[in-house]
């Protein structure tokens, strides 16, 4: 088994940390962009880039309310994203067991 079997969308340091952090919340709960950025210590631009990639894969949804400085973005891990992380973790364990 090679690393190719790992989900390429999750298998990147920043995205792995984003998904793992959101998965620590109960199913359906959301986290604000600013809190997520604070926890992960990423720049806003970098975080947006990775969030977009995860959102395109259907692993999370983001919702923005308000405009300009008053805007507030929340991010929620989808059921699909949670399942993908579980599958990624399982594959990783199998890979490490075989190494």
């Amino acid at each position: 088994m090679s690393t190719d079997t790992l989900d390429a969308v999750i298998h990147a340091p920043a995205r792995l940390r984003i998904v793992a952090t959101l998965a620590a919340l109960p199913d359906g709960d959301s986290l604000s962009f600013t809190r997520l950025q604070d926890i992960l210590d990423l720049t806003p631009g970098n975080l947006i880039t990775h969030l977009r990639k995860l959102e395109d894969a259907g692993y999370l949804v983001s919702e923005t309310t308000g405009n300009g400085r008053a805007s507030h973005t929340t991010i929620t891990l989808t059921r699909q994203g949670r399942t993908a992380l579980d599958a990624y973790t399982k594959t990783l364990r199998e890979l490490l067991g075989g190494l």
Binding site: H11, L42, N46, L92
Partner: peptide, 24 residues
């Protein structure tokens, strides 16, 4: 702040070792 993967591509995790991924 961490500015890793600033220029991200679909394969930006290819260099990530499974052990390192598990630790992370």
């Amino acid at each position: 702040t961490h500015d890793i993967d600033q220029t991200t591509t679909a394969n930006d995790g290819n260099g990530l070792d499974p052990r390192e991924a598990a630790r992370l």
